[in-house]
Design a protein around this nucleic acid. Structure first.
Lengths: 215, 215
DNA sequence: CTCCAGTATCGAACGACGTTCGGTAATCGA
DNA sequence: TCGATTACCGAACGTCGTTCGATACTGGAG
């Protein structure tokens, strides 16, 4: 069972979500297709469990943040760590906390985030909303930013830089009077780093949260 | 072509993403499977175009916000409208702004958000990050919250309330010493409304943004 | 009128997928 | 020794996205 999840995650990590098929997984395990169904009932459950398997590492890597004197700083650390794990695994976001029966680590991570929120002494409802917003922001943006690039890039026909250039050129061709914002930020977009973008947005959210706690 | 997209969206709306197959779509259009490939090159492109087709309505519904005296309030209105459209269509988030060549409305909506951000007079990089965070938050959370409920609920074997009760019961069974946060918010969770949760988190983000603009 | 290049449509066939199922060992307490 | 439980196997089924060669309809050039 442990081997099934390990190999499933390995398959997902090296070749993305479409590479995880029961046939490929069985071949990797040196077994038959049907055997996998002894351990999981469906592919959805396999991905549920794979997600939780990955979260074990995240849980370990975020332990160091929980004792930070500043709970907001702790949330920042936890969130960034989770983002790093999720951005390379767009499937993780979709299976995170989907079935807590199979996913103890999902629950523990949510609790870990919530533990920091508790230190802000908000009302229960505000705490619930805050923790959900933090987790949702991280997971949602990671899923968004981690999505597979178009097929031209995957197949290697187009460099990532060339692809970016083509998009930017298309945008530059638009009427500046109709798209003033796009033309304002296009230079930033051209050389942007996804991780920076995530962090900047995340800091906005955390700042809003800090302000709510101060009230 | 217009009919293809309209029927595709209709299919998606009434029966969810798995219901959109080329065979089902062809049947609805009263044509053959192969005909659809005259208009789109692949299913991905079909979904790209379907997403943009839906966004036309969102664009119309958000027009009224752009002249709000408070740009933050305008962003709130735009974001909530986009959320409402996206939460019922979990696929929308995954195909939003994926290929702007087919998706002029995606671009227009991003521009509309950005237009409000411009009114905050931030630096270009901050503006870029702010608009992306707003759109990412909305789309990411909508995709997260809109995902199909487990099969027991879809098949009607379990009521949504019963399902929620089962999850809550499982959580209540956990050790309160190990999961203090979960026990703090569980009453809130039990009767929670997804839309409220989104709005609370979104307001945190917008508040952080307002604060950044004030500096 | 003839012809032909373009436009639009069709559905059988292909390969890959998730899943099912009947069967086969291996293990082990009674 | 034996029945039951545990673990495993792969052919077969139905569905999916996609391909492809065939078919018709159109409108302008010769």
């Amino acid at each position: 069972m442990e081997a099934v999840l390990t190999e499933a995650v390995a398959l997902l990590d090296v070749a993305g979500e479409p590479a995880l098929t029961f046939r490929a997984l069985a071949a990797r395990l040196g077994g038959g297709v049907g055997s996998i169904y002894w351990y999981v009932e469906s592919k959805d459950e396999l991905l549920d469990r794979a997600a939780d398997h990955v979260l074990a590492d995240v849980l370990e890597d975020t332990e160091k943040f929980v004792d930070d004197p500043d709970p907001i700083a702790a949330l920042r650390g936890i969130g960034r760590t989770l983002y790093d794990a999720a951005v390379d695994r767009p499937w993780l976001g979709r299976y995170f906390m989907r079935n807590t029966e199979f996913q103890p680590n999902s629950l523990r991570l949510y609790e870990r985030v919530g533990g920091q929120v508790l230190r802000l002494h908000l009302k229960p409802r505000e705490s619930f909303h805050a923790a959900s917003a933090v987790v949702g922001f991280v997971v949602g943006l990671a899923a968004d930013m981690g999505q597979e690039p178009p097929e031209e890039v995957v197949s290697g026909a187009l460099d990532r830089g060339q692809f970016m250039k083509r998009v930017v050129d298309q945008w530059r061709g638009l009427d500046p009077a109709e798209y003033p914002f796009l033309h304002t930020i296009i230079d930033e977009f051209e050389g942007h780093d996804d991780a920076d973008q995530f962090r900047a947005g995340f800091d906005l959210l955390l700042d809003g949260l800090r302000r709510q706690a101060a009230r």
